[in-house]
């Protein structure tokens, strides 16, 4: 019989106090304040209550929606490229042919240690004609307005592919070697092993990384913000850049708060939908884990 949890009225609150104090002051209060001030407008330094007017303005704000559509598109393109690359890395390193596995794993993961700001500076200079004369000869400008989004896709992929690879490798190492042995005895070659055993096993992790990557993409800020030093970038390039400019260049805090709340709602809605779809999907098809244990039992 295991011991019970501790019953005490005051002690838990003493332990919780420092966290709760900080949590309320620096997370809840700003959040509530953001919602509160989004119902006001400021004219001549005086706040006027306007109800949902700011939200109506936001819904009709063409610039805001263009920026949302842009990060949606970016999120899909970047997510697909990065996850395919990360899967390729994880599956290649998991074959019997790969040499120097731990060295390669480290090299692929190392960009993750480079802060986003510096990743943007490094790639930004490599993209810049004044620093990389080769681009001049190739007549290729990665920072031109038509290519800029893909230039950022490359920066983010470089930063995060190794991180996703590590998550896939972790899921693969959890698999019992007996399953692989069984598959090999049944005549599976390495390709079939990857296609029919490992990929299905990775499915839950792939779904999770897709969601995390898309949510991260919605918040895109650092990379385009840093690149403004090297190439003109519109003040509404991403929702967060638009919000930042609204708050600090236009000094329209109530509207910036409105857009922040709006963006948070969209992000939360997407994650909730993704989680529900994922739940339903998993219930419909037997989970990879169950399949694996059934196979090894057989």
């Amino acid at each position: 019989m295991a011991a019970q949890m501790i019953r005490n009225r005051m002690q838990p609150w003493t332990f919780l106090a420092p966290f709760l104090l900080l949590f309320v002051a620096f997370l809840l209060v700003p959040l509530i304040y953001a919602v509160y001030i989004s119902f006001f407008v400021r004219r001549m330094g005086v706040l006027y209550f306007v109800g949902f007017q700011n939200y109506i303005t936001a819904i009709q704000d063409h610039q805001f929606w263009v920026s949302i559509v842009r990060v949606f598109f970016y999120g899909v393109v970047q997510g697909v490229i990065m996850i395919v690359l990360a899967l390729l890395l994880a599956l290649l390193l998991d074959t019997k042919w790969a040499k120097f596995k731990s060295l390669f794993r480290l090299l692929f993961l190392l960009p993750y240690a480079v802060p986003g700001v510096f990743a943007s500076i490094l790639w930004g200079f490599l993209y810049s004609k004044s620093m990389n004369p080769l681009l001049h000869d190739l007549k290729f400008d990665p920072l031109s307005s038509g290519f800029l989004l893909y230039a950022i896709v490359n920066i983010a992929t470089w930063e995060w592919a190794g991180y996703n690879m590590i998550l896939y490798i972790a899921s693969l190492t959890g698999v019992s070697s007996e399953l692989y042995e069984a598959a090999k005895l049944d005549g599976c070659n390495e390709w079939q092993l990857a296609r029919f055993i490992k990929l299905p096993l990775l499915k839950p992790t792939i779904v999770m990384t897709c969601i995390l990557s898309f949510i991260g993409s919605m918040q895109l800020f650092n990379e385009p913000f840093l690149l403004t030093a090297l190439t003109p970038i519109s003040p509404d390039f991403t929702p967060n850049i638009y919000i930042y400019n609204m708050a600090f260049s236009m000094t329209n805090l109530p509207y910036a708060a409105t857009l922040s709340v709006f963006l948070a709602l969209i992000t939360i809605l997407i994650s909730v939908i993704a989680l529900i779809v994922n739940r339903l999907w998993r219930r419909r098809t037997p989970t990879a884990g169950a399949g694996a244990s059934a196979a090894s039992a057989a």
Binding site: F23, F26, L27, V29, P30, L31, Q219, S260, T267, I268
Partner: peptide, 26 residues
Amino acid sequence: RNGIFLLVIASLMIPGTVTAIPLFIV
């Protein structure tokens, strides 16, 4: 206890950039 834990989990979903500007005002 459960209420606080739910609050903690819910706040994991809020992107850090959302509270940054109101945080500045606070």
